[in-house]
Design a protein around this nucleic acid. Structure first.
Lengths: 121, 121
DNA sequence: GGAACCTTGACACGATCGTGGTAAGGTTCC
DNA sequence: GGAACCTTACCACGATCGTGTCAAGGTTCC
């Protein structure tokens, strides 16, 4: 079976500027996972090549790491994580001053308090 | 002048379970920035103590790193970065098999047409 | 004025990230 | 059947992350 369904890893490397080593690494990070031929060869289609090109742009333009994009992907797929991170970030750096020092609110309590504050505002 | 506006760094460390070293590190990561006394001492108020406690919960519960939360914060404050990351992640979640060029070209338009041509060859 | 804090800066260390190699073995093509 | 690919699995290396510790100096409190 000829591999007409996409580029092999070295062809994809040539095309995108990534090294074959990095293409495997990017796959292990869960960012770009090409399909496989019957015998296990990676086959990069137009979609994967596009993603690899824009991934490079993304990293260069914003000076972020692959692990950052991997975390963003995790934020996208794990709703509970996303909500908790968002709520943590949303917590005001300054206090409404009605919190008693000494007893910390759990996430659920904090969420409840914030909902009350929003509803009452 | 007595520091009645908050806990000093070692008091905050005692209270939250973080080490004083880590409180400075967390501040350097832009996650929890206490106010300062006239002479430069960090003063942790109830809000900061709350954030430190929930930060620990967040890291433990999801096994994420401080750098991940710092990146989430950056995502929150940098709209352009957020949009570009979101669009990258949305481009091809999993195995689109055969993608129509018109679909994903909407992101970063013409610049990639050369790539697409090569991929199609 | 001394003890006990606080500050920034530095050195250190294991763990992980981002890369590159190499080795041992299977696949494709001619 | 051999050249040229591909696979996974390792070793290595500098850079950064998450910590601790220590030094040199300023501040607070008694």
């Amino acid at each position: 079976m000829a591999m007409t369904d996409g580029l092999t890893i070295n062809e994809a490397a040539q095309t995108t500027g990534w090294s074959a080593r990095m293409l495997r690494y990017i796959e292990s990070a869960g960012l770009v996972s090409p399909s496989r031929s019957a015998s296990g060869y990676r086959l990069y289609g137009a979609g994967e090549l596009q993603r690899l090109a824009t991934l490079r742009e993304l990293l260069d333009r914003y000076e972020v790491g692959l692990s950052d994009i991997a975390f963003a992907r995790r934020l996208d797929s794990d709703a509970a994580l996303r909500v908790d991170v968002e709520e943590w970030l949303a917590a005001a750096p300054q206090r409404p001053a009605d919190v008693e020092p000494g007893e910390w609110l759990s996430f659920e309590q904090m969420r409840h308090q914030r909902l009350i504050a929003v509803a009452g505002a």
